[in-house]
Design a protein around this nucleic acid. Structure first.
Length: 487
RNA sequence: GGCCACGUGGCGGAGUGGUUACGCGCCGGUCUGCAAAACCGUUUACUCGGGUUCGAUUCCCGACGUGGCCUCCA
């Protein structure tokens, strides 16, 4: 099956052909570990997890290498460490912050049903590679040393002839436009406004490493160099897919391209550039000042958003309902609808006695839309059709639904529990439970003697308590009544 | 100011130069003592104005609106 992916660089959907089909290579920009990841951070993690699964399906699990970095050197980390652990030496405090945040991040994305990437490299473990790239850039005339900083010169890159991309191609803007934009800060150590930092000096107490470029004072890397270093180390000078949020196109990815292509003299860094769209919360940009900032953890474990907690599968399904390049509006209503979908799928699948912990193969009807630039919505539409058929007794449809859910990482094994925990009767105490059961039994007796008035009175009484009854029949045709708490 | 993306029915959200998306809701029906649940079915659409075309929601131009980026935010 042909895989087609939208490439940000060429701005078109193209057939995907791996450089080496025996090792498909993908790099995705991961978190900077200084605080709980917010729900916007979850989007690329989930989107590229699905792509990872699809690539493994198409090329074989052993033939896909997925690298997602962990950035553990950053000013925000330093600030957080100083704030949270004022008594500790900064380096120790930083380690505490990064280790704890990394653990939280893993817990969160595990709960979202994401596979671990093949490699999760840390920036601080790739300082040697960063220095090596910086030395190459200085030697090639693309970077220069000034006041203990090393700066990259996009101007020098564009002046060089042959074999290199033009700076600004990915972001679709020219160097002249950027200079004209003039909102760049003109630091005294920059020769040109558009030059950006590869390496900078560390203040006393800050993390520091021996500097490149013959600089005697120790320093630390700039923002963009880490991804050039880690992708090089783990995927090589050129690789297949580079992904991240749309906001990273400029400057982060543009500068990565500049660094890598100039260091290795290659015409491109990644063959395909993929960027997920932004997430809004209840129609507004998520920000701390608006008070609508919500972390993955808060959604999973608190009632801060929508008045209840939400299972990981519900968060994931909600994320997959919108195409990855479109903006997504994160609303409590959307989460509730996803929960209802999963409850309905669970009802459809359960009677067929499928192996919950087992894994069923993904149907082609789901692979096909996913292979068309990750059309999640169409894949999910198929699932609804199978659910319908499964409810009508179609075992094969139930298996397909399960296979699709397993493939999409929707944690079928947790559906039952997810639905239960959200049914609002999880916190019912035993006394109430016994009382409801007794009332249901009394009503059953009234119905058996056709005392409809009493039967309805009891139902009204239970309704007033927030309990909804469902009458049905068991296998022998005898009446059976179950109850649940109204949502 | 520059660049970019998007604008689909009550809501969410696919897709397409001429034929059903799908889900939720609403409404009707089956079932039920009556309900609920379940199942079946129906309904409403392509921001506006031009243009290309036999025909445009789909292509082009413009307007309006929303969102994003423009040096460390996914």
């Amino acid at each position: 099956m042909e895989l087609r992916l939208y490439d940000t660089l060429s701005r078109e959907k193209r057939a995907f052909t791996p450089l080496d089909p025996t090792l498909v290579r993908m790099y995705v920009c991961g978190p900077t570990v200084y605080d709980f990841a917010h729900i916007g951070n979850a989007r690329p993690v989930i989107v590229f997890d699905v792509l990872f699964r699809l690539l493994r399906h198409l090329y074989g699990a052993e033939h896909v290498k997925y690298v997602r970095n962990i950035t553990d050197v950053d000013d925000k980390i330093n600030d957080r460490a100083a704030r949270d652990y004022p008594g500790l030496p900064l380096n120790e405090a930083i380690r505490k912050v990064t280790e704890q945040t990394e653990r939280q991040f893993h817990d969160d994305v595990d709960a979202l049903g994401c596979l671990r990437p093949t490699v999760e490299p840390r920036a601080t473990e790739h300082i040697d590679e960063m220095r090596a790239i910086i030395e190459k850039l200085i030697a090639g005339g693309f970077a220069y040393v000034e006041q203990d900083h090393v700066l990259f010169s996009p101007g020098a890159m564009n002046a060089a002839n042959g074999g290199l991309p033009r700076y600004g191609t990915l972001a679709n803007r020219s160097l002249d436009e950027m200079i004209a934009g003039a909102r760049v800060d003109v630091a005294p150590y920059k020769r040109d406004a558009t030059d950006f930092v590869l390496w900078k000096p560390s203040k006393p107490g800050e993390p520091s490493w021996p500097s490149p470029g013959g600089i005697s004072t120790p320093g630390r890397p700039g923002w963009h160099i880490e991804c050039s270093a880690m992708s090089w180390k783990h995927l090589g000078e050129r690789f297949d897919i580079h992904g991240g949020g749309i906001d990273l196109v400029f400057p982060h990815h543009e500068n990565e391209v500049a660094q890598s292509c100039c260091a290795f003299h290659t015409p491109r860094m990644a063959e395909t550039w993929m960027h997920n769209g932004f997430l809004q919360v209840e129609g507004e940009k998520m920000s701390k000042s608006l008070g609508n900032f919500v972390t993955i953890r808060e959604l999973l474990a608190t009632d801060k958003f929508g008045g209840r907690s939400w299972p990981g599968a519900v968060l994931r399904l909600t994320m997959l309902k919108t195409h990855y390049r479109s903006p997504i509006d994160w609303t409590a209503q959307a989460l509730q609808e996803s929960l209802d979908n999963i409850a309905s799928w669970n009802d459809a699948v359960t009677p067929h006695g499928l192996d919950e912990a087992g894994s069923y193969p993904p149907p082609d009807e789901v692979i096909a839309p996913l292979a068309d630039d990750l059309n999640f919505s169409r894949a999910i539409a198929e699932m609804h059709q199978w659910a319908k058929a499964a409810r009508a007794g179609d075992y094969l449809a139930a298996k397909k639904l399960a296979g699709a859910a397993d493939f999409l990482g929707l944690q079928r094994v947790a559906w039952d529990q997810a639905v239960q925990s959200c049914a609002a009767d999880a916190e019912i105490d035993d006394a109430s439970r016994a009382k409801f059961d007794a009332l249901v039994a009394a009503r059953a007796a009234a119905r058996a003697s056709k005392n409809w008035a009493e039967s309805d009175r009891i139902r009204d009484e239970l309704a007033a308590l927030g309990v909804v009854l469902k009458d049905g029949k068991d296998a022998d045709g005898k009446p059976v009544t179950t109850w649940e708490i109204a949502r």
